[in-house]
Computed example of a mutant assay.
Amino acid sequence: MANFTKKAIIDAFVKLLNEKTLAKITVTEIITTCEISRNTFYYYFEDIYNLVDYLFNTEIEKLQEITMTSESLSDECELVLDFLKNNRTALKHIYDSANRDQLERYLFKALDQTMLNFVKHCFKDIDIPQGDLHFLARYHKYALVGFLINWLADDDDEELESLLKRISLLTEESIRNYIEKLLEISRQKE
């Protein structure tokens, strides 16, 4: 019953978030929508911002489980595409609120492990220093978050699919070139 109630609260919140900005959503609206008491809401969440954090952390866990099975960054981007398109209004409402930093932290955290897993997977057979792997993942994570934030600020839904494909191709090629240069420098030192 507890999981059902928590899911009902989250579903009600996401429904409301797709209709209005975060600042205009109240606990009263959430509890009315999912037909629970105020005490029940506060049993699960301290406030709406705690609910946002929980929602983001849950989505990060789902994303990381999914991306562990993909073979390329392009595959990973395809997996993320539906989530972004289906939740664009809700994400935009959070982005346009005073809680923009929560969304940015979510994107950075979600992509942090995803990019690192991808870089490690691409070069699992090559001995590359951990510092370089982390640098590559971090560099491309920042680029991708920048593009996603810009996409949220723009109104062109159709561009996202093309944008993610272009980013993934550029990222994969950039990583390969960087690794080749590292290996070349390493061979020259020997």
Results as ranks from 00 to 15, higher is better:
170 L>A: 12
127 D>P: 02
163 L>K: 09
21 T>K: 15
16 L>V: 01
2 A>N: 15
40 T>G: 10
39 N>V: 15
72 S>N: 09
113 Q>V: 08
23 A>H: 12
178 Y>K: 01
43 Y>C: 11
154 D>K: 06
151 W>K: 04
165 K>H: 11
26 T>D: 03
4 F>P: 01
39 N>Q: 15
190 E>T: 12
165 K>S: 12
79 L>C: 07
146 G>E: 04
40 T>S: 12
126 I>K: 14
28 T>G: 11
90 A>Q: 04
23 A>E: 15
103 L>E: 01
85 K>Y: 05
11 D>I: 11
117 N>L: 04
11 D>H: 12
112 D>L: 02
149 I>K: 11
23 A>K: 14
167 I>P: 02
45 F>P: 02
124 K>P: 00
150 N>G: 12
73 L>I: 10
152 L>A: 02
108 F>K: 08
39 N>G: 14
28 T>E: 11
83 F>R: 04
68 M>A: 11
54 Y>S: 12
146 G>K: 05
139 Y>F: 13
92 K>R: 14
153 A>N: 03
164 L>S: 00
150 N>Y: 08
28 T>N: 13
50 N>G: 13
131 G>Q: 10
104 E>T: 08
148 L>M: 03
137 A>I: 05
54 Y>W: 13
81 L>N: 07
150 N>T: 12
179 I>G: 00
96 D>M: 10
44 Y>P: 02
69 T>N: 09
8 A>S: 15
172 E>Q: 09
139 Y>P: 04
52 V>N: 05
173 E>N: 13
117 N>V: 03
125 D>I: 03
104 E>M: 03
143 A>Y: 10
21 T>Q: 13
151 W>P: 00
121 H>A: 07
164 L>V: 02
164 L>T: 01
45 F>T: 02
58 T>W: 07
106 Y>E: 00
135 F>I: 11
121 H>V: 06
26 T>I: 10
175 I>A: 01
40 T>L: 08
182 L>C: 07
22 L>W: 00
138 R>W: 13
121 H>E: 08
131 G>N: 13
26 T>E: 11
24 K>T: 14
128 I>W: 00
63 L>R: 07
136 L>A: 06
139 Y>K: 15
173 E>D: 14
189 K>G: 03
152 L>E: 00
176 R>Y: 14
78 E>W: 06
184 E>I: 14
62 K>Q: 09
113 Q>G: 08
67 T>C: 07
32 T>I: 12
62 K>T: 08
190 E>I: 15
87 N>D: 06
170 L>F: 12
84 L>A: 05
66 I>A: 08
79 L>P: 05
92 K>G: 03
130 Q>P: 05
171 T>C: 07
155 D>C: 04
68 M>L: 10
141 K>C: 08
